[in-house]
């Protein structure tokens, strides 16, 4: 375990290397053409922050961050490739809007952060070396803060159910024929009349690219 109160030169140097790598790769995420590269650059940023947490003595936190983020970014990579044009990154492209406003907002937040970091007053109570941080985390999670931990668990379960419901091809109107989500049943099954505002799909060519117009009743 590293002594946080009097770090060695090695710790200082590693911190700045990791920090520089984290910020640099975080910046490259939005500057690269390839979706896979962007995702894994974000992963590199996370890995470096995880390494910094390890330097700080958060043994479980650091490794857990490494682990969680790796899996998360792997999942992300699939979605990036699935939902972005130019998945292979062979053509240069810029897909941004309101770039000036966004950059300004980013700089303002950065400036605000610096103000807090430099002029803010924080208590100086460094982590004592040899403190059993993992054991403490475990007893905290299963002891005094169990309710918080449990709420997080419930939130995660709700997330699982919610994401399955949102992304499932089956919806409350049953199985969908294509990729358009399921359609509400017609009011009159014989005539095939639909509820007000719902336009049933008539053509199957889908040439106009609005295959989702028939998807109603959920709003």
């Amino acid at each position: 375990m590293i002594d946080v109160s009097s770090p060695s030169v090695f710790v200082h140097v590693s911190f700045w290397v990791f920090a520089a790598a984290a910020v640099l790769s975080g910046w490259r995420v939005f500057r690269t053409d390839s979706m896979v590269r962007a995702t894994f650059l974000l992963l590199v940023s996370f890995l470096n922050v995880g390494a910094i947490l390890l330097l700080l003595g958060g043994a479980y936190l650091g490794v857990a961050l490494l682990f969680m983020m790796t899996v998360e970014m792997t999942v992300m990579a699939i979605f990036m490739v699935a939902f972005m044009m130019n998945p292979a990154g062979l053509n240069p492209m810029v897909m941004v809007h309101q770039p000036r406003l966004a950059a300004a907002a980013g700089w303002v937040l950065f400036g605000g952060g610096i103000v807090v970091a430099v002029w803010g007053r924080f208590p100086d109570r460094p982590l004592e070396p040899g403190r059993p941080v993992i054991v403490e985390l475990g007893t905290e999670l299963m002891g005094r803060s169990m309710l918080i931990f449990e709420s997080a668990a419930v939130a995660l379960v709700a997330t699982m159910i919610g994401s399955v419901v949102l992304s499932s091809r089956r919806s409350r109107y049953g199985e969908a024929a294509g990729d358009d989500g399921s359609l509400p049943p017609p009011l009159d099954p014989v005539l095939g009349t639909y509820p007000t505002g719902v336009v049933p799909e008539t053509s199957t060519d889908g040439g106009d690219g609005h295959g989702g117009d028939g998807h109603g009743g959920m709003h």
Partner: peptide, 28 residues
């Protein structure tokens, strides 16, 4: 013999997936 050895092993497994994927993807 790190304290969070099992979690570290989990990281190795998940990064291995990334490594194999990148190996296949990057050959183009």
């Amino acid at each position: 013999d790190v304290e969070a050895g099992i979690v570290l092993w989990g990281t190795v497994e998940s990064l291995a997936i990334v490594a194999i994927f990148l190996h296949g993807w990057s050959a183009n």
